[in-house]
Design a protein around this nucleic acid. Structure first.
Lengths: 345, 345
DNA sequence: CTGTTAGCGCCTTCAC
DNA sequence: GTGAAGGCGCTAACAG
């Protein structure tokens, strides 16, 4: 049987309350007594039963999640994963609030962070936009002792506790490597389609893509980046023009969202099969395009994992517990038509 | 505040004990009373606090894990992940026993399953070898009400509750697709190196590889399968001979273990760069070979995830709880040199 | 500074 | 059939 507080109390010859004070290092214990208790803890190999402690404290974990609104399929998937987690949150003593802000809107995001702060949560998870006012707002939260996890897109220099997302430089490198190898000796330039250079994840992917292309496929020309604002209609227009301008285009790397527009443009131009296309995020549209051959490979971040990881980390931080880095690393999924999971996740 | 058993008791006008009987549908309650309690539960939206219940029951989860012994790096990694999970098992009320059996040894495995059965665990996780006596032993366990999870290699038809491993047919398909696309128009046959056709995962990978090769790369010749028993020395000998026999070999798919031998043979023959190689499992050796370019792509199953998933599922089954399928799906990681995680997991 | 006491939400004897 | 009482391991008031 595992030792309990009673065993320690007996071993150290003190009362339960004193043991508790030592365990939670609260003041009001002479150092002699404290030492005796600590020795007892060590010799008995005591480990606190967190479940029982939480029960006694009737502890709960108020968390705030800040997500971009809009029709971005990936973000909506993220939100639905979050709502699913909330539905089973009763058992986990979670109390989650969702705040919505327009995408790529730094002032709105900063305001939401202030709003979150007023609610005095144990932790905040936020899909970050990189801007000084956002960084400032996150810093303030951290100073208040609220743990902050950035989700999907990071915010370096803000002092956030953790980033729940993929290594986007590596993702860009991987895309570049795959595109280069898939194209083999084929001639023609490649294009990069981004959402906005305001978000860190898009910038990182671009950097990785460019690095690997110049290292390993130096002869391949990379056309200037197109920014589609993750907006399918705009993307369709821009890619349509791109295809007209470049009849010899060999490949496209779409590192942001708005894939619906990309797919439409490729198919309308009859170039779906001849242009090697690599895109991000598994959504109903991109899945169909992968199966039909319009998209050749898809890089994905598992929204469910990101949400669960963010929650686990926020909880651990709230309890002052360490996080298992390996478990919280969000991997880059690479999907070909051959390893697509059966169901949409 | 969430409703508790007290609230239900009050609402239904009965005592705590009766509420408890209904909750755990134990006998000794008139159906009228039972109905009243159930109505109270429904109207108050009660959900039982599992943590508190476990505390009161001082419940624990005795589990048995059966792993192959030997120097297979992947299996040793799996074991170390398991030991890590055991080290933090105190908080999770887990009581895990590890049983070791020689690899590919069906009688020994069947005996271990009987041994496990005698310990009356709540659940068993086993790396299966496909053989009638093993299937039989697993069936018996299930009949005893012990939940069984197959780990890494599945055992269809045994009635196991869950498989914690990757879709190996899809893995084989993915390998075939990557190899085909990486080779492009290059001439020459490809070889397949397996461990043993006795384990389901190897057979499944081969099936997937052959399927995609004949569908999408029909002109590519696939040489007869080589079985290296996951033994590095044997593998090195066999691959050395293979390379001599086939000076025009374009690619190798290594679907089992023993990659140390494969890498050595390729490098000794000076064919490390000229033969496109796809292998399984991230280990220190395969990682180095990926970085040096001897291996072109690595398919991996995350041992840590498999172990944690097996534990979660076994625990859920023991409590009669449903499992979240999406969360427990073990994905096929695809590693290029560009998306290799920094540290060995 | 230290100890006593009464719970947290649930389960389990043992009476009635 | 049903209920009352005590306890799981820990924490938090309130006394001393």
């Amino acid at each position: 049987m595992r030792p309990t507080v009673h065993d320690i109390a007996a071993e150290a010859g003190v009362s339960l309350a004193t043991v508790d004070r030592v365990l939670n290092n609260r003041p009001g214990v002479r150092s002699v007594t404290r030492n005796r208790v600590e020795r007892a803890i060590a010799t008995l190999g005591y480990v606190r039963d967190v479940a029982a402690a939480n029960l006694a404290k009737s502890r709960s974990y108020p968390l705030v999640f800040i997500l971009p609104s809009g029709e971005n399929a990936f973000m909506r998937g993220l939100e639905s994963e979050l709502r699913f987690a909330m539905s089973r949150s009763a058992a986990e003593r979670l109390d989650i609030t969702i705040l919505s802000v327009p995408a790529f809107d730094a002032p709105a995001l900063a305001a939401a962070l202030l709003d979150a702060r007023k609610r005095r949560p144990a932790g905040v998870a936020v899909v970050a936009v990189e801007a000084p006012e956002v960084t400032e707002a996150v810093k303030r939260l951290c100073e208040d002792g609220v743990s902050v996890v950035t989700l999907v897109s990071d915010l370096p220099g803000s002092g956030r506790d953790h980033f729940a997302g993929v290594d986007n430089v590596a993702a860009g490198r991987t895309a570049g490597s795959l595109l280069g190898r898939f194209l083999g000796g084929r001639e023609g330039p490649v294009a990069v389609l981004a959402g906005s250079m305001l978000v860190r994840d898009h910038r990182d992917r671009l950097e990785g893509f460019r690095a690997v292309t110049s290292e390993d496929f130096a002869s391949r020309q990379v056309l200037p980046v197109i920014e589609g604002q993750d907006n399918p209609l705009l993307v369709e227009k821009l890619v349509g023009a791109l295809l007209e301008r470049n009849p010899d285009l060999a490949g496209i790397y779409s590192l942001g969202a708005g894939n619906r527009g990309l797919i439409a443009a490729l198919e309308k131009a009859g170039r779906a099969k001849s242009v090697c296309t690599i895109a991000h995020e598994l959504t109903p549209h991109s899945r169909a395009a992968l199966l039909s051959g319009t998209i050749d490979a898809l890089l994905n971040q598992n929204a469910g994992h990101e949400v669960r990881s963010a929650i686990r980390v926020l909880k651990a931080k709230a309890d002052g517990l360490p996080v298992i880095a390996a478990q919280e690393r969000i991997r880059i999924d690479i999907f070909l038509k051959d390893n697509l999971p059966l169901e949409q996740e």
